[in-house]
Design a protein around this nucleic acid. Sequence first.
DNA 1: TTTACTAAACTGACTGGTCAGTATAGTTTT
DNA 2: AAAACTATACTGACCAGTCAGTTTAGTAAA
Lengths: 191, 191
Amino acid sequence: MVRDTKGKIIASAANVAVTRGVQNMTMDAVAEEAGISKGAVFYHFDSKHDLLLSMVQALTDVTDSTIADVQSKDTEPGSWLRGFLKASLTNTTEDLGPVGRLSVAFLTAAANDTSLLEPMNRRQPAWREAINQSGLDPVQAQIIRLAADGLWINDVMGVPVLDAAERTAVIERLQAMTREKAKPDQKGNQA
Amino acid sequence: MVRDTKGKIIASAANVAVTRGVQNMTMDAVAEEAGISKGAVFYHFDSKHDLLLSMVQALTDVTDSTIADVQSKDTEPGSWLRGFLKASLTNTTEDLGPVGRLSVAFLTAAANDTSLLEPMNRRQPAWREAINQSGLDPVQAQIIRLAADGLWINDVMGVPVLDAAERTAVIERLQAMTREKAKPDQKGNQA
DNA sequence: TTTACTAAACTGACTGGTCAGTATAGTTTT
DNA sequence: AAAACTATACTGACCAGTCAGTTTAGTAAA
């Protein structure tokens, strides 16, 4: 691939989804945004379904590589979760970064057809494993991950769940929680 | 309203979204599902946009009334969050209940047009207030809510984040967390 | 007489997908 | 070195199908 047109199309599609709204993410709009013809888009992707699938794949790839990046410099317990937090929260509500743009595409995919989430679903067993092996109490670790998901989805949808101060406090607390070692028995319900 | 046709249409629309897929939630399909004519659907709703808006409104109404129901029998600190947890988690992954169906519609709305989330966005300040006044440490309270959101969205999308045992453990832990009073200083980062 | 519909035909705009043909760069043949 | 050929990348016009929304004419009940 001399000129990475495929990558450009994916980025353009994500961009259209954010700027013009997901309902306007037509193949024509994607082509226009990428500065190529519609035919060229179909040259690279068999169908819109195929494009959407690639976008979801791109999101999981970005997430995985962010985590790997963090873990290459942080081998303490909980590093996987710190990577996951970083990947989920790189986007502020306005002015979404590349990950945020892809996230919107992810939502699109989910809404249009759940089967498009295959690339994401395929990563779940590995992620669950990573979370359970993170060195933290597994239940607490899952909760951290779910809270990150919750914050992320609300961001992507533009639902104002938290104000700026609350947001900062929540993120700091989640980060602090990734540094709490497993406590053998806190409330009497440890298996 | 002698025969609650409006309600029936909303329920039917949610049903179509779940059973036939969101992309097939056409006005014709909704009418057919409700067992009425397309004209009747347009008699009650000015447009599809209007119907979607009503579906999101219905979801927030169901959530609010579930919370109110729980709080009428539970006045301990954290009762709001226990109500919210109940509202979010009434649905198992398969076999969605009414709330789960509406949730899918919510996703649809979000994906098609963020402005459709207005009814949901309007409730956020009140929910934030309720969380902050819940009697728990506010940051922890927000995290519980976000984790519930995270579990909910993954359920709705059908992403297998947790296996059955993990799921049970996480829900129990979240419920336990709603009973933990605010600890003045646990880790040294309380304002 | 107003409210709440049914039934069915129709329109107008949009959108995913197709396809014949063109451009470019590199490779083999003569 | 020129000619012939190949693979890849892309253009741009076109189309068949879909769907929200409209219209019309009529029915049933309170």
